[in-house]
Design a protein around this nucleic acid. Structure first.
Lengths: 116, 116
DNA sequence: TGAGTAAGTCAGTAAAAACTGAGTAAAAGG
DNA sequence: CCTTTTACTCAGTTTTTACTGACTTACTCA
């Protein structure tokens, strides 16, 4: 038995599993990626940038991501309403890990192509 | 517009989205993690290590992960049958990214606790 | 006056992922 | 002889996740 390995009795306590609950569903990465590229986007801009997402999923995702501390929502008291979304510091801190994962993903895609 | 940013018309072509298809479902990380710790495990050992997984999910996951090049299946022609699973090189290459992601996840868990 | 834009909400439905519980063959151990 | 172990497989069902399409309020532009 490797004593340096931390055991998590309940899967939910594992930081890695927890991280996946934050970014693992279908639309999380596209949203994060759009906000990372453009820094700040209004609701409908974001919707246009994240192709195919529905209002339902976008609005509920943003709400959850705000609660989770990934995204900031800034509302201006104007008419017509203006709401701007951007990544928090914590959200930005995620980017290097995503880039590392993307690098790995790319190498896996290449393997598939090579073996075809 | 940031010219250094690669655009992927179809989400499926994005290496990051692709990576998540390999590790994003509920039981992939627990399986990978168990194989990373123990290097080689037989089917039922793995099942015991990954608490709560069903045969259905474990066997189909292993089959897919083998096709995807994450896992090697080594079968010995013995009775009773013996089958051993382990990570491929590509599977092991994933670990650093996961550790980075876990680190981020841990910091997010701490924030939650602090704010409670 | 009618259309378009803003930022969403909502009920209902479809699709995807996971779970339940049983079953298989052949052999070892009590 | 009866139970357990091995490595699975399968039909059927539940749970989770995402999609559909319509609707809201208040303003601007033609």
């Amino acid at each position: 038995m490797n004593s340096e390995v931390t055991k998590y009795g309940r899967k939910e306590d594992c930081p890695l599993t927890f991280a996946l609950t934050l970014i693992g569903s279908k639309w999380r990465l596209p949203i994060i990626w759009a906000l990372w590229q453009d820094k700040t986007l209004r609701y409908n801009e974001l919707k246009r940038r994240v192709d195919g997402i529905t209002n339902m999923v976008l609005s509920s995702s943003l709400k959850e991501m705000e609660n989770q501390g990934l995204v900031v929502r800034k509302q201006y008291m104007e008419i017509p309403p203006r709401v701007e979304y951007s990544l928090t510091k914590a959200g930005e801190d995620l980017i290097p890990s995503l880039e590392s994962l993307a690098k790995w993903g790319k190498s896996m895609q290449n393997i598939r192509i090579e073996n075809t």
